[in-house]
Each structure stands twice: as C-alpha cells, then as structure tokens.
C-alpha cells in the first residue's frame, strides 16, 4: 500500500516519470481552468449573468469577502494567490469521491510545495507592501533578541501548514482505503462524506491561514492584527 501518490507512476514522458501527484494536479488544474474559461468566455456587462456565472461570482466574492475580513488594503493579488490555494485544495479534496482519483493534497510533496509557496509569498507580499527595510524590521520586533525566534516561527508556519494539510487528507484517504477492505459497503461512504467535510475545512483553513500570514506581513504596524488561533 502506497501512502503517497508520489510513488505511483502514471506514465513517462521523454523519459521523465509522471507520478500520480503531478498527474492529478494537472487534472485539477485543467478542470478549474477549462470550467472557468467555458463560463467566463462570453461575459457582457449588459447581459444578465447565467446561473454558472452567478455560481462563480458567489465563489469568488465569497473568497474575496473572507480575505477582506482578514486583510487590509488592496486584496486583488491576495485574492489571486489565496483564492487559488483554496480552489486547488478544495477541488482536490472534493475529487476524493471520484473512484480512482488520488488527491494531490494527500502527497506531502504537494502540501510541502504549497507551504513553501506560502513561505515565499509572505515575504514577497510583505516587501511589496512595506518595502524590504520595513519588512525585515518586523523580524526585530518587539526586540532584536526576538530575531531567531521570529525566523523559527516563520519556518514553523510553513511546516505546520504542510503537515496539517497532508496529515488530514492523507489520513482520510488511508483510513478510507483500510475501511474499504474491512467493510466495503458502508464505512467508505461515511469516510468519503467525512473526507469531503474535512477536505473543505482544510482548504478553508489552509487558505485563511495563508491569508493571515500574508496580511500580517503586509499590514502596517499600527493596524496589524493578532494571528488567529489555528484549529
């Protein structure tokens, strides 16, 4: 039994093995992109929106509303980033119910990649917002003695993000696989339903935590908010 889809090779292209993590990531990417493109390709301001477009607007505005509750100032680029995080993780977790689909988020490589991207995005957004001097100054707050602790905290955020998401998704998938062999007609259904719920929650948590980290890095000192409790 493979605990990670990284070990499952789907095919090889020009001698490069493509594992299940990358393959199903492409599937999710294609699904999100094609669906979005099909719905948004003929948008006109003077035409009433279709139900699909309304659905997308509800999703995008819901994400934007959540971001605006956390962050301050312009949120358009944060929406691109955190919204993509949420949609990717949520779609990956939702497709857990599709037989044969292995969610990329069940791979520690994927969650590590997402955590690293957050780890890089936080200083990038911070530097873009405050300037490089202003951002680096935050590592010396409230005192220069806190510099090593702040650096450790910065990395521990990424590690906790990666491990949390990976653990929840991978454990759900593994438990469902184990129960499938024990009670193939009842428990997998219950576990899949629970998996959908925890998957959506994890997507929300991952995205909202990334938003909190980035917004704390971009917020001015007098308006910085305390970090939310991690569930």
């Amino acid at each position: 039994m493979n605990l990670s889809p990284d070990q499952t090779i789907i095919f090889e292209a020009w001698g490069i093995p493509v594992n299940a993590t990358i393959f199903y990531t492409w599937v999710v990417m294609a699904l999100l992109t094609v669906t979005s493109h099909l719905i948004t390709r003929r948008l006109r301001a003077d035409v009433p929106p279709s139900r699909w477009r309304t659905t997308l607007e509800v999703i995008v505005q819901g994400i934007q509303g959540q971001i605006e509750e956390v962050a301050q100032g312009p949120t358009r680029y944060l929406l691109y980033y955190a919204g993509t995080l949420f949609l990717f993780v949520a779609m990956s977790n939702l497709l857990l119910v599709v037989p044969g689909f292995e969610p990329p988020t069940a791979s520690l490589s994927t969650t590590t990649a997402l955590a690293l991207s957050v780890l890089v995005a936080v200083p990038l957004f911070g530097i873009t917002s405050r300037g490089i001097g202003g951002y680096l100054k935050t590592y010396l707050e409230p005192s220069f003695i806190m510099l090593p602790f702040n650096i450790i905290a910065e990395f521990s955020r990424g590690i906790s993000l990666a491990i949390r998401l990976y653990g929840n998704i991978m454990s759900g998938a593994v438990i469902a696989a184990i129960l499938l062999s024990v009670a193939p007609f009842f428990f997998p259904v219950v576990m899949d339903v629970l998996g959908l719920l925890t998957g959506m929650i994890q997507a929300y948590i991952f995205a909202i935590l990334a938003t909190v980290y980035i917004s704390s890095a971009t917020a001015s000192p007098d308006t910085s908010q305390p970090e939310k409790e991690t569930p």
């Binding site: 492409w26 990417m29 992109t33 948004t40 990649a113 991207s117």
Partner: peptide, 17 residues
C-alpha cells in the same frame, strides 16, 4: 504547477469575474 494555476485562474476566472 501552482504558480501556473494562479496565472491561469487569474486569466480565466478572477479577472473576467
């Protein structure tokens, strides 16, 4: 992949919407 997805969704989802 994630960066590409960000660009794709910005192009086909966020901006149009």
């Amino acid at each position: 992949n994630f960066l590409v997805l960000v660009l794709l969704l910005r192009r086909f989802l966020y901006r149009p919407i």
